[in-house]
């Protein structure tokens, strides 16, 4: 492992969703990515999107058990962003020729493939959740995403007791699963 202990700590922090680690990585790398995007026909919003996408890829990498980062965070983030932006430019029908600066890049195609597959899955989940409608969506999000207690959820959604809310939650879950797997299996 080439990256120094400081970077290791940052990555660990990122994996645990720690504000300080996120801020530090953000601060140290965003300017570089923003310059890259802005200098290649991008906007401030593009820069933010691409950079956050790269941060998520880095997060996934840091989280995975077989996690090995063989270069600096900076290089990794830059490589991901460069690749992502090239792809975005192509989708927009523009010829993406990013002037190759002095920045070092590494091959990130494999990581990006995994990342994109994940994103696709998340998109399915998001779509399924959105087509559920309320209160199903709200209940499920409160329970599974925000990890709220059933009693809390019952009060928030106006059920007389937790058991009733739980009952409703399982009904919703059955629907969600149906919706999700309908798409997910096609996607497979």
């Amino acid at each position: 492992m080439k990256s120094d202990t400081n970077e290791q700590l940052l990555l660990k922090g990122l994996a645990n969703n720690e504000t300080r680690a996120i801020d530090t990585i953000y601060k140290e790398n965003f300017g570089m990515v923003q310059a890259l995007i802005l200098n290649n026909n991008g906007t401030y919003d593009d820069a933010r999107d691409i950079f956050q996408e790269a941060m998520i890829a880095l997060y996934e990498k840091a989280k995975s058990e077989s996690f090995v980062l063989t270069c600096q965070i900076k290089t990794y983030v830059y490589s991901i962003c460069r690749r992502l932006w090239l792809k975005r430019l192509q989708q927009m029908g523009r010829y993406g020729i990013i002037a190759n600066g002095l920045e070092e890049t590494i091959a990130v195609e494999e990581d990006l493939d995994i990342h994109e597959k994940r994103n696709a899955e998340f998109a399915i989940m998001e779509r399924a959740l959105n087509s559920l409608g309320e209160p199903c969506k709200g209940i499920l999000e409160s329970y599974y995403l925000q990890k709220k207690d059933m009693n809390e959820i019952a009060t928030a959604f106006g059920y007389t007791n937790a058991d009733n809310a739980k009952n409703q939650k399982y009904k919703c879950l059955v629907r969600l699963k149906k919706l999700f797997f309908a798409q997910y299996n096609i996607g497979e």
Partner: peptide, 14 residues
């Protein structure tokens, strides 16, 4: 669901 939850949280933090 778990992954999705993590992902959303991270997006929010970012």
């Amino acid at each position: 669901m778990e992954m999705y939850a993590e992902h959303s949280t991270l997006r929010n933090s970012l």
